[in-house]
């Protein structure tokens, strides 16, 4: 089996999930300049709601694909409503507060959601049902499962749709105008508040999809899963250049690859000193190096304090 190719495949799958989540961070950042710290928890809620719906409907004997679709149809609105509430009550009142305030509020929301989820779903890991038959294909000595193919295609499709939405529609134009300058956009008749809400809600829909994908690909859902995932997706957004949609997709893929290859080869690289249990530090190392050496990310704005 070709390990290198296998790691690349795994990396791309992981990366497309990161990209989906990273989009949520980047869109909100682009418009509000806010790191929506709670976004990872929205993904977690998406995954757990999807899990609940699927396990509840499992006895009906419906085909798993249909179950997954139904799960998404429930999870997405739940996540969207959640994002709407978060924006409305935790962020909007703080829009003109000192810059640490919204971030601290976001951290609060994150803790709140985590513990609510723990109360509802408990502390245990939940086995996520299969959503597709366990088929797999061989390519060049590596394996790719049907689920992985679908994940990549779905992520790509969703992102293409989002790009179209933002670049080609009137709503997208309003979003871009708001990101550029909310005050002027408001003067031009753009309903800024509605656009901001919309941004959060779209990000949440993507998060629900991402949650379902994570659950399906890794077969678990857990109240704590959003935290690391969120951090990594945020890293991906920064890597690509935060505020930049294409950047988020690129950053997601790249981070997925770095983690996958890094985790796979770290033992050889360090002569066995560091094992694959250090996989998680790659994201942080990438994050810190990007911010220090290329603060604009691959294709974004500057993030250092400017004059």
């Amino acid at each position: 089996m070709d390990i290198f190719l296998q790691q690349i495949i795994n990396g791309v799958v992981l990366g497309s999930i990161y990209a989906l989540v990273a989009l949520g961070y980047t869109m909100v950042y682009g418009i509000l300049g806010l790191i929506n710290f709670a976004h990872g928890e929205v993904v977690m809620v998406g995954a757990l709601v999807a899990y609940t719906v699927m396990t509840a409907l499992l006895p009906t004997g419906l085909p798993p694909v249909l179950l997954a679709l139904l799960a998404l149809l429930v999870a997405a609105p739940v996540c969207m409503a959640l994002a709407w509430i978060i924006e409305r009550y935790a962020y909007r009142p703080l829009r003109h507060a000192p810059k640490l305030a919204p971030l601290i509020s976001a951290i609060g929301v994150s803790i709140l959601l985590q513990n609510l989820a723990m109360m509802i779903w408990g502390r245990s890991y939940h086995a996520f049902p299969d959503i597709l038959p366990p088929l797999h294909y061989d390519i060049g000595g590596a394996q790719i499962t049907l689920l992985q193919v679908v994940t990549i295609l779905l992520a790509a499709g969703t992102m293409a749709a989002l790009a179209w939405l933002i670049q080609r529609t009137a709503m997208g134009q309003a979003m871009r105008a708001t990101a550029e300058n909310p005050a002027i956009a408001a003067l031009m008749g753009v309903p800024v508040n509605r656009i901001i809400t919309l941004t959060f809600v779209i990000g949440a829909a993507l998060a629900a999809l991402a949650g379902l994908m994570v659950g399906a690909n890794y077969s678990v859902a857990h109240y704590y899963m959003g935290f690391m995932l969120g951090l990594k997706a945020f890293t991906a957004a920064v890597l690509g250049g935060i505020g930049n949609i294409t950047g988020a997709m690129l950053g997601g893929l790249l981070l997925g690859l770095i983690e996958s290859l890094g985790g796979g080869y770290i033992e050889d690289l360090t002569g066995g000193f560091l094992g694959s249990n250090y996989q998680d530090i790659f994201a942080f190392l990438v994050l810190i190096s990007v911010l220090v050496f290329r603060p604009g990310g691959l294709m974004g704005e500057r993030v250092s304090e400017r004059a």
Partner: peptide
């Protein structure tokens, strides 16, 4: 922890 999170949000607001 729930109360922690909630209090952060409320205090900021």
């Amino acid at each position: 922890m729930l109360l922690f999170g909630l209090s952060l949000v409320l205090v900021m607001r």
